[in-house]
């Protein structure tokens, strides 16, 4: 840190492109999902502990704050899943051309929004939870 060594160009020297935002969102959604996984742990532990703790957990999840956070985690999950698939295809050398990188990026964003909306619509209207 004290050395005056040359540093590589960082984010501020590049022209802003939305693929950069997608890359940052992949990391951010991964961090958010790591925290969300703890809710799943708590839910399973509460279920194993018995009906009373399960019901308390369910009302916590079903509260206004709980629903908003679950909605956010749902989108983070679908985004990370779809963009993760995009990464896996890159890993086997597919989709590297610039137009493809842009179009798959848009597909991932639109797909994650549609899947999030569809999940909540189906969950609430067909299985009708409260």
């Amino acid at each position: 840190m004290t050395d005056q060594r040359p540093t590589s160009p960082h984010i501020q020297v590049y022209r802003w492109q939305y693929t950069m935002l997608l890359s940052i969102l992949h990391r951010a959604s991964g961090i958010a999902l790591s925290i969300g996984a703890l809710v799943l742990v708590a839910w399973l532990l509460a279920m194993a502990a018995g009906p009373d703790s399960y019901d308390r957990m369910q009302s916590l999840i079903g509260s206004n704050v709980g629903v908003v956070m679950l909605f956010g985690w749902t989108w983070a999950l679908f985004y990370h899943l779809l963009n993760g698939l995009r990464h896996l295809f890159w890993d086997i050398g597919m989709g590297f051309e610039l137009p493809q990188a842009f179009s798959t990026g848009i597909t991932v964003v639109i797909g994650s929004v549609i899947l999030t909306g569809a999940s909540w619509f189906i969950g609430l209207s067909i299985f009708g939870g409260t």
């Binding site: 009906p51 399960y54 969950g123 609430l124 939870g129």
Partner: peptide, 11 residues
Amino acid sequence: IAHIGASHVVA
């Protein structure tokens, strides 16, 4: 999704 709001027994 199929178990939103499921009771303890169902879950």
